[in-house]
Structure formats: C-alpha cells, structure tokens
Amino acid sequence: MGLDTGVRRYDGYKLRNYSDSNRNLVEAPAAGLSPLRRPVTGRSCVITEMPVANGSHLCFTDFMSTKRRKLNELKRHEAGRVCGFAAHNDAMVIKLREIGFAEGDEVEVLGRGLIGGTPISVRLNQTVIALRTREAGLVEVDLTT
C-alpha cells in the first residue's frame, strides 16, 4: 500500500503500543516504519494505510495490538478506528463496507440493547448505524479512548 513513498503523518499513533500475538512488545520509533517491516516473531506483518482526516491511519494486520478489539467488544462510549475486517471477502463484510465501514473510520459505541448488549448503535464518522453483536464482531477496531 505504498509505504515507501513520500512523507506522512501518522495521526498521533505511538507505534510502541503495539505488540504481537504473543503479547511481546514491539519496539518501534513513533515515526519510522523500518523496525516493523522486519519479521516479528517469525512472521511478517501487513501494514495497510488508510487516509483519515488529518493524515493517514496505519492498520496492522497479522499481529495483535493491546488496543485491538472487535467492535462488539467495545463498551458504551468507547471509541476507536476501524483497522480491518475479520474476513476479506465475506458477504457480510462487503455489506458492512457498502453501508460505510472502512479502514481508518472513526467508530464509537453509542448504545447497546438491554438483553445481551445487542443490538449496538455505532457512530461511524457522522453516521449512526445499528447492527447486532454478531456482525459487529467482524469489524476490527483500534481503541483511541
């Protein structure tokens, strides 16, 4: 995704907050990607860049962040940025994208239903979307709160 071109801002992300799936802290300078592009615990990670309002947002797949959540795990008033989907070509993921979910988008859980915390009302940028926990589980979010 064009990581080698140009100068970018990284939306205030502190890359050292990321850890891999073994919860090993990955040390990385705040503005510089070279440490991350090396294989981490034996695997290489894929970094996707999505434009956001003030720069770019980096989505790290293939290794876990301590701030990585599924959208259905967010509590009321917790916010974050969409960083990916559980499946690439799943019909439901395409529907989620069609209604507007995309990497880099701001999401915030506004409310949850009484029984089993479902459905969830989510602010997606300026739009509010209602969905059930099962579908929300397909959206991966990096917490910003």
Binding site: H88, I94, R97, E98, A102, G104
Partner: peptide
C-alpha cells in the same frame, strides 16, 4: 468484492479529506 470496494472506499476517503474543509462531530 472485497478488493474493489476497499479500493473505492480508499479513493472516496481521500477525496473526502480534500473536499471537507471543516468537519464537526455527529
């Protein structure tokens, strides 16, 4: 499919960044 719609979204978001001069919360 997953790829085409992601590409459309990426293009759309970068256009949005150019044309939205000021944006407030919801």
């Amino acid at each position: 499919d997953g790829t085409t719609i992601k590409a459309l979204q990426k293009e759309a978001r970068s256009i949005a960044n150019q044309v939205i001069l000021h944006e407030t919360g919801m």
